[in-house]
Nucleic acid binder design. Structure first.
Length: 438
RNA sequence: GGGGGCGUGGUGUAGCGGCUAACAUGCGGCCCUGUCAAGGCCGAGAUCGCGGGUUCGAACCCCGUCGCUCCCGCCA
């Protein structure tokens, strides 16, 4: 018999169906047993009249909560049943995998264990429908990203994650043995996506793993995460990159809202708002002035702001423009990498931006410096040696168009979109300084 | 790396100098019942993270240590 999904039961009234799922609750009474069976599409009540089959009743009585079951039975319309007014009259039951008892924790309890313990038993935690929905949404988010980009003539690339040289300082690189020498895990596809510009690809994107050896203990950092990167050629300035990113985000939100808006409202309590175009843009110099006027004390960091400042500027933008997103632009050179292009009219500033969403930094982008002699000069200023990055500098020697792009953290976007407070709940499995298992 | 907070049955919490360590949930048993956040009774389950100290007496106070967590730094 073909498996029926629980969401489709209404169309199978009076038919015998096969269901597969997990035993969420067993209510074992004197004459009748009720099994609440859950699959990824919903839950249904299965009723077993014990006198019909006492042996089966005994088997059911021993089932552990969360056992994996296949059952067959007849679908009955029964308005008395609170669960969708339906029930299945049990005909047969197979225990595909009994759940031991007691469970490490009950995923459906009112209060959940701490986040650390739930990570130990992440697969149990992921059985919660809200988490299932999370990854359905994430799947659509990635699909929408690719839809938008492929419609706009972007090429998807996959760059190596085993690399021989740091793309920047090197302080946050994981190193590993690579035969007779050292290799590193890529902390960004930055150099390679620029190589694609030198390759004449004009527009590329990559969605792939990124590794950072930062001992960060916050609710928004990971040592391994999925980076969403884009790079485009023949731009005039970073404005072209921002315009592209905001249209792309607008498209993603539109797709998610139309398909999952109601479910997101129900499970996450979030009324998804598609951000209007254009997103507000504020130069950093102005950002600092605005923050100061609101009582923020600059952390004396040469034009940079701290997370509290990011949250406050987001609050300002929300008040003034009623917008959840804001581009902070024109960052000072001191807090930007050597490959960011500087503003011709003010060499102390870069053609760069961050995108802040609901107070969280989700993107850094810029126009890149494609003139090799300028690039070399800026690298020298940052104290970098040419040898390890010579292959990169060579990208700009034989006809590399002006270009720019951005990198976005997938999990951070998901946090913002669904109102998840901790990045550990925003990935399938979290990797942090002290978390390598499971 | 710096700072704050927290470590008590499987899980979530209460207790903060005198307890045989409490409650909820889960688990086991019995009763009742077409149940549906089911209900009722009974029961098992914790040497209160670990080490040291103060005290007649420590889950409780002090020191150290480990773990977790949040914030900062850093970033996506």
């Amino acid at each position: 018999m073909e498996r029926t999904l629980i969401k489709d039961l209404r169309s199978k009234i009076d038919q015998t169906v096969e269901l597969k799922g997990w035993l969420q609750v067993l209510r074992d009474q004197k004459k009748i047993q009720f099994i609440i069976l859950r699959d990824p599409t919903g839950a249904a009540q299965v009723a077993h009249w014990k006198p019909n089959n006492e042996a089966l009743a005994e088997e059911i009585a021993k089932l552990g909560t969360e056992s994996a079951l296949t059952i067959t039975g007849k679908v009955i319309d029964n308005p008395v049943v609170k669960l969708n007014g339906l029930e299945i009259q049990l005909e047969s039951l197979t225990v595909d995998n009994n759940a031991e008892s007691p469970l490490p924790f009950d995923p459906f309890a009112e209060t959940l264990p701490t986040i650390d313990y739930r990570q130990d038993w992440r697969y149990m935690d992921l059985r919660r429908p809200v988490n299932n929905l999370f990854f359905q949404v994430e799947t659509l988010v990635e699909l929408a990203m690719r839809e938008y980009w492929t419609k706009n003539n972007f090429i998807e690339i996959h760059t190596p994650k085993l690399v021989g040289a740091p793309s920047e300082s090197g302080a946050e690189l994981f190193s590993l043995d690579y035969f007779e020498r050292k290799a590193y895990l890529a902390q960004s596809p930055q150099f390679y996506k620029q190589m694609a510009m030198a390759s004449g690809f004009e527009r590329i994107f990559e969605i792939g793993p990124v590794f950072r050896a930062d001992p960060s203990f916050t609710s928004r950092h990971m040592t391994e995460f999925t980076g969403v990167d884009m790079e485009m050629s023949w731009i005039e300035s970073h404005e072209d990159v921002m315009a592209s990113e905001e249209a792309w985000i607008n498209y993603i939100y539109t797709r998610v809202k139309e398909q999952y808006g109601d479910a997101i409202k129900e499970h996450f309590g979030v009324d998804l708002v598609v951000p209007t175009l254009p997103f507000p843009r504020i130069p950093m110099k102005e950002v600092v002035e605005i923050l100061k006027s609101r009582g923020w004390v600059p952390a004396d960091k040469k034009g940079d702001i701290d997370p509290a400042g990011e949250r406050d500027i987001a609050a300002y933008v929300k008040e003034k423009y009623n917008h959840d997103f804001v581009f902070l632009t024109d960052w000072p050179i001191g807090v930007r990498p050597f490959y960011h292009m500087r503003k011709p009219e003010d060499e102390t500033l870069t053609r760069s931006f961050d995108l802040i969403a609901c107070g969280l930094e989700i993107t850094t982008g810029a126009q890149r410096e494609h003139r090799v002699e300028v690039l070399q000069k800026q690298a020298t200023e940052k104290g970098l040696h040419f040898e390890p990055i010579q292959f990169y500098l060579d990208f700009f020697r034989y006809g590399c168009p002006p270009h720019g792009g951005f990198g976005l953290g997938l999990a951070r976007l998901m946090m913002v979109m669904l109102g998840v407070g901790n990045i550990r709940e925003s990935v399938f499995l979290f990797r942090g300084p002290t978390r390598l298992i499971p």
